[in-house]
Amino acid sequence: MRRIPVAGATVGLLATLVIVLLHFGLSSYHQGLAARVAVYFIAILGLNILIGYTGQISIGHGAFMAIGGYTTAIMSADHHLNLIATLPLSFAITFACGLIVGLPALRLSGVYLALATFALAVSVPQFPLKFSKFTGGSNGMQTAQTPGNSWLYWVTWSCAGIGFVLAWLILRGRTGRAFRAVRDSALAAASSGVSLPIYKTLAFGISAAYAGVAGSLFVLVTNGFAQPNEFGVLLSLQLLIGAAVAGLGSLWGVLAGAAFIALLPTISASAPLVGSSHGQDVVFGLIVILIMLVLPNGVVGLLARLGQRRNA
């Protein structure tokens, strides 16, 4: 993608066109679903920058989504800030949080980082319970306005578009090169003058900021309601799985990963055998394990493999 910006730009334009046209083709219900896809798209995009491009694992990005989500809820409910204006705010706050989390993460790698971020994901939803005066406790809190599905569709996909272009710009330039160098060999990167502390924490900050904005939008998509349960550990696990489905280290696969985790519950709920409530998790888990066993490179890896076969 870095080598052929023309093709990339064409695909980008086409994608924009499809998104704009889809808005008129979809019913209100489906616009809501599509907005969900966009939310996960943003979050997985950020996670992919961290895992796929910088080689640091995180099982805790639901925590950043929680921080972003509560920023929007509190700012809207208590300070009557415009909903859109809360987005840059939660971007900034979660960026800072990401940097702070990134600092201890400097000393951790592999399994240890996985453990620490998992613990983060489990711990953070406890804070709204502890400080229930500000957050409404387990009842959650409601934003001042609840936007309609059409509004949500435009805002989420605009954010997704901005996020995608931003990620592409970051990753194609000097910073992206440094990220990949850190991923491929931290030692080699450091000895060629790439500062590990700066780029590792920066990657954490950026990916946390993406998750934060996604969290804000997540609250808006769920009827403007922020609740500790919604940001539980399962959300973090889903994001990781979305990133794995997408294929780590690829930007385009993210759409597939986002669609997978956003739409699977709806699809499996209407499937005949799975039917009611909790069958979706069974399908979800099964598919994830199957994907890891059969398609270790995610959807993009599958496409690449098919392409190779055709060329061969």
């Binding site: 696990l237 888990g285 890891m292």
Partner: peptide
């Protein structure tokens, strides 16, 4: 490591769902 972690995460959700 990541592949096995993701598989165990898949198991987590699968068992929970079952």
């Amino acid at each position: 490591v990541i592949a096995v972690v993701i598989v165990t995460v898949g198991l987590f959700i699968l068992i929970d769902g079952l």
